[in-house]
Amino acid sequence: MTEAAVSEAPTSTPEGGDSAPARSLASDAWRTMRSNPLFWVSSVLIVIFTLMAIFPSLFTSTNPTEAILRDARVRPNADAWFGRDIQGYDIYARCIYGARASILVGLLTTVFTTLVGGIVGVFAGYVGGWTDTILSRLGDVFFAIPLLLGAVIVLVTLPATDNYFYIVLKVVLALVVLGWPSMARLMRSSVIQVKPNDYVQAARALGASPWRVVRSHIVPNALAPMIVVATINLGAYISAEATLSYLGIGLQPPTVSWGVDISAAVVGMRTTPHMLFFPSLFLSLTVLAFIMLGDVVRDALDPKNR
């Protein structure tokens, strides 16, 4: 220990040169995240599930809609690793193929709620006054509708269809309609926090246009809480999709989704628990991965830790 101290001490005297390289807050956050094992666990999980969603054939060559009725309800075995369900579908293949619907719904809902909520929030927070009052009250109206009731109304109102993406979009739309106000509230409050900062005043004093002030001063500094909440919400939307599908108002068979499978498996919960277990496990792992990532991001972006 003393030896290390000896060799370090003389170099610690200040000398010329640019010892500290330019470091942005984002790169600082990245450095913090990198050293967090939870970040790597959640990222690996998310990458795996994303690959599943895009290229399900990488993970299985079995067709998830190929029914082998004589093997229906068979328990996990060498042929069907996770067993087969009531229709004789391979549960492993269905878990793999089910990722697509879940991830799509989660991702799209997050993107749209963030966009809609973010824009409304920036507008309400920056402009203030009547605009703020009207937008905030509008958000409150949507906020007050219970998720299930709202989703039922939206999904039932829209015409039925067989197109996979159209079905997914319907669910996304239902979740966005009910989900944007919370994002808008969040963005509004962080904009209101950032707005009185002197650097915003300085930009105004320089004659910067409102658009410039919002784009280069307000939004970059107000974004951090949105990123964190969006990541955590992504998990929550996936489980909301499963809930809707479970209740029979979200995705419908023949669409393959974890929620659909869980719904179908509940009937035989006692006799054939594996039918319920595997889709639930996949669903929980995905949700957990996103919530964990959200936590890690929050810790990394929190300036109090720095």
Binding site: S24, D198, Y199, A202, A205, L206, S216, N221
Partner: peptide
């Protein structure tokens, strides 16, 4: 006409070089 602010910690945008 330009202005210099009091608080050196809030007068510079932390996300800009």
């Amino acid at each position: 006409i330009q202005i210099v602010f009091q608080d050196p910690y809030t007068s510079l945008n932390p996300r800009m070089t």
